[in-house]
Design a protein around this nucleic acid. Structure first.
Lengths: 338, 338
DNA sequence: CAGCACTCTCGAACCGGTTCGACCTCCAAG
DNA sequence: CTTGGAGGTCGAACCGGTTCGAGAGTGCTG
């Protein structure tokens, strides 16, 4: 059942059916009614491929998805969900593209074969080939996070530097003097993963500013690594009384490590960091943390992308979010309090 | 840069270029070489829309995605990741479709507009309109879970009945006599959500078989609800010594509730259920549970779907998984042990 | 009544591929 | 020397839409 079939049954030409449906040219009320009736009877819907071929737009956005090798964090799920819904609300579909092992190939599929009108890039690095490449071919995309040269692009991101700094200040204000930082896996840090880098930067800077004794650690994205990491922390400096983490997946493990070491949260050890609210609430005591607004980030990214698609040539826009710290129960007075 | 351009530069016709690239007809070595060289030089890739229009296949699979209203569970993320990768491994893309508020509309987009060759349906209900509809129009799809009439379709799922039964037997063997079941949200149960229904069924049956005193609860998908649910359990029957849960998102809240009530896990309260390993490991003590093999489920679903697409008319196949219970640390002897 | 603008409709071209049938050439078998 | 088949190439049609230019009909003005 194609447009020709509809035209036949409605007794008009194919172009008239097209105009009746799109409204791009005036069509008599009588004709429009007949066409719509036939369309409804047959349940006709125009083929997406044909339409995409004809007018050069696929009405599909691409989401470049982190590989499954890295464990996913909960934040990503909320993010994806909100992107799907925001896209749907604007009559666009979302195509997932793994940026995994063979990332070139999937890039080729998305861009080379023109499957999508634009893309959203997750897992940004400070120096990011993909960003450079897309920028150089002028392909419309929005990054989730900032590269080292954020002024030149479209992006939505979190100010991890400021968030981690806020966490450190919070701990320092409470009287903690010896603090640790539990980062994302080392491989991510080394390859310039944005949040890991900027978070570390914020931690180092704020700790120095407050004159704290600070140690930094990398930790794989799972509970067992979190537990091991905590053991290293207490082994390296048993006098440590607080930590800041970016690592959602390790959180449960960190808590377990503390429990095993006999440290009570928040009584004799404080924990804080940057974590989606949903996960901060699963640990006991609930985590005092800067809540990652994943869903908002997804909506903003789609907004930006649609804006870029609708007005090509506009100068880049961006959103830098700095959510406040939600005080829950995982931080308490440190040794020098009072 | 379309196929005509390539043909021009290689000095052959468009059809020859097509055959040189697809290999569907013999082409002289000489010609093939020239075509490939031009293609490489220009970085030409055939347009996905045009190809889809011409041969009727989009090389795209649809994933009907649960709405964001329900909180996502961690299991879903692993699942999606593995589906994306399995699809990519077979040169297919994955299109996400929200099955949310306006599920008819997104269905229309996917099927009516022929954006995908086949689909994977999550969040199956025992009586599922979507399944009935797709079956009646003979659209190729694979369900994640079984409807009430599983013999007639293609699906991959978990045997929630058996898994929950195994949990109950495990608790009964340990000497627990008064147990509770923490299910997914009531709205899901009421609307016939498969895992909630079958899980409940397994629980009720096994508890009866073992002569246990059993209570069942519904619980929303978040930590606060888990905590509240646990309070209800202990309020309704303070002698309860164990629970079985399907609710990943509530797990942290359940543990918190237990801690607040002064019940030590596993010393004076046992917890078990059906949960993805990654989440079971985040709580302390780690959860003894049937590990939901989300990634495997995703791979299997893609395998089934591809098989169905490649051999239309084959009789339905399915996979019913019954993962074993992983003994971790959250269950211990009950009151009647020894 | 001619001229004109406006509304409505149609046919044809186009988007960028795939595929079918036909044709030509060359070589081996009869 | 004919015949036949295989290898290689081309043109044309097709997939299912959109869009442009033009023509038919109508009503209004000069």
């Amino acid at each position: 059942m194609n447009i020709g079939e509809i035209a036949l049954r409605a007794g008009v030409s194919r172009s008239t059916v097209s105009y009746a449906l799109s409204g791009k040219r005036p069509v008599s009320e009588e004709t429009r009614r007949r066409v719509k009736q036939v369309v409804d009877e047959l349940g006709y819907r125009p083929s997406a491929s044909a339409r995409a071929l004809a007018n050069g737009r696929t009405s599909t956005l691409g989401l470049v998805f982190p590989p499954a090798g890295n464990h996913y964090t909960g934040m990503q799920l909320d993010f994806i969900g909100s992107v799907v819904e925001a896209a749907a609300a604007r009559d666009h579909d979302l195509l997932l593209s793994p940026s995994g092992v063979d990332s070139d190939r999937s890039f080729q599929r998305l861009l080379g074969e023109r499957r999508v009108d634009g893309a959203i890039l997750m897992e940004i690095r400070l120096e990011d080939d993909r960003v450079d490449h897309l920028t150089s071919v002028d392909f419309p995309f929005v990054a989730i996070g900032r590269t080292a040269h954020p002024e030149r692009g479209w992006w939505a991101g979190l100010d991890h530097t400021a968030l981690v700094e806020a966490c450190v200040h919070h701990l320092a204000d409470l009287g903690h003097r010896r603090v640790a930082f539990v980062n994302r896996p080392e491989q991510l840090l080394r390859t310039g993963y944005e949040s890991a880098r900027r978070g570390l930067e914020g931690f180092t800077e704020a700790a120095a500013e407050r004159g704290l004794t600070a140690r930094t650690y990398c930790c794989d994205d799972d509970a067992a690594s979190g537990r091991a990491c905590l053991q290293r922390i207490l082994h390296d400096d048993p006098a440590t009384t607080a930590l800041v983490t970016l690592n959602e997946a390790a959180l449960g493990g960190l808590y377990r490590g503390l429990a095993e070491a006999g440290r009570q949260v928040p009584h004799d050890f404080s924990v804080t960091g940057v974590v989606a609210a949903r996960w901060a609430e699963t640990v006991t005591p609930q985590l005092t943390a800067a809540d990652v607004p994943a869903a908002e980030l997804g909506r903003l990214a789609v907004d930006l992308l649609m804006e870029r698609l609708d007005n090509p040539g506009t100068s880049p826009r961006n959103h830098l979010l700095v959510p406040p710290i939600s005080l829950r129960g995982s931080t308490g007075p440190g040794p020098t309090a009072l």
